[in-house]
């Protein structure tokens, strides 16, 4: 069965990627699955300088999901290039680096450090992190902000560029179009939804940052709707994510218009779920007599 899909010039062996910040650098899951079976791995958000992230506590369980406020903790791009990249570059899957920053110079700086690494399949420009004070989501909530980051990164990164969008906007299609106009090869959506939870007995916020990003199946119907809208608004491929828990959910995103999907929070519940989704898609295509995975993209029928 041909499961391959194309994100611009990048060919993925199958449409199933793991979402940034939910799968470490892949290595954390090597005991559980064969990483080479994945379409791609989007590594943890990488910034120019190391970041300690937000103070503990950073997580709150919610009905059918969770809030997080990690705040882009990572050891910086130099550490990634020197210590992590050599360990994962041999994997037979697309390694995508999620690039984050507090300023346009930060994003460009990370890309410059990644130049020349042969095994980076693409970058995912994160203009949608809700948990940092500067940069992050603020670039992703206006067309002008999105355009300024994406066009600057476009000059610094000749390879495939995915732009990760925040759902915390009035009209996500406008931001998607701005990213497309500034040279994005694809958009991925959605990042987490801004949320909040209170410990009512203590009358205190559960998260150290008060607000955080909501993920999990509770956001899936909203994310599916946004993927459907964006896929009609832009010509570039859309990568769908938001609460995918199993193969059915992944197919749902593709039918809504996604070319590929990312599995995020579900990795915390079942560390083997990503490859189970690959198996499900294969089985689904056979059961529906479809020739390949590309036949699923936008294949929802409206009578």
């Amino acid at each position: 069965m041909d499961l391959s899909v194309n994100i611009g010039k990048l060919r993925l062996q199958n449409p199933v990627m793991t979402a940034s910040g939910t799968f470490g650098y892949g290595e954390e899951f090597a005991d559980f699955i064969d990483l080479n079976r994945l379409g791609g791995i989007v590594v943890k958000g990488t910034t120019l300088a190391p970041r300690q992230g937000n103070p503990y506590p950073r997580m709150a369980e919610t009905p059918s999901g969770m809030l997080n406020a990690v705040g882009l903790q990572n050891k910086g791009v130099d550490y990634f290039v020197n210590n992590i990249y050599p360990r994962i570059k041999h994997l037979d899957t697309a390694i995508v680096v999620n690039v984050s920053g507090a300023s346009i110079e930060d994003y460009v700086g990370v890309c410059e450090h990644l130049q020349g690494l042969d095994c980076i399949a693409a970058i995912e420009v994160n203009i949608s992190c809700p948990n940092v004070k500067q940069g992050g989501m603020s670039f992703g909530t206006t067309c002008q902000g999105a355009e300024s980051v994406v066009s600057a990164v476009r000059k610094a990164w000749p390879g495939t560029m995915i732009v990760k969008l925040t759902p915390n906007v009035t009209d996500i299609t406008e931001i998607a179009r701005a990213a497309e106009g500034a040279g994005a090869d694809a958009v991925s959506l959605t990042n987490t939804f801004l949320g909040m939870a209170i410990d009512v007995e203590r009358r205190r916020p559960i998260l150290s940052t008060i607000t955080g990003g909501l993920s999990g199946p509770c956001i899936r119907p909203i994310a599916v709707r946004m993927v459907w809208q964006v896929s009609h608004a832009v010509k570039i491929p859309v990568i769908g994510l938001g609460g995918i828990m199993n193969g059915r959910d992944a197919v749902e995103f593709m039918l809504a218009g996604a070319t590929a999907v990312q599995v995020g929070t579900a990795n915390f519940i079942d560390p083997q779920v990503s490859v189970k989704i690959v198996d499900y898609i294969t089985e689904y295509l056979q059961r529906h007599h479809l020739p390949n995975a590309r036949a699923l993209i936008g294949a929802m029928q409206v009578d």
């Binding site: 799968f23 470490g24 503990y56 506590p57 997080n68 990795n267």
Partner: peptide, 17 residues
């Protein structure tokens, strides 16, 4: 016993300084 999500070092929620 910090509040934890993944348990395998991926989510970075259960950090201790």
């Amino acid at each position: 016993e910090n509040r934890m999500a993944c348990g395998v070092g991926a989510c970075l929620c259960c950090v201790e300084d």
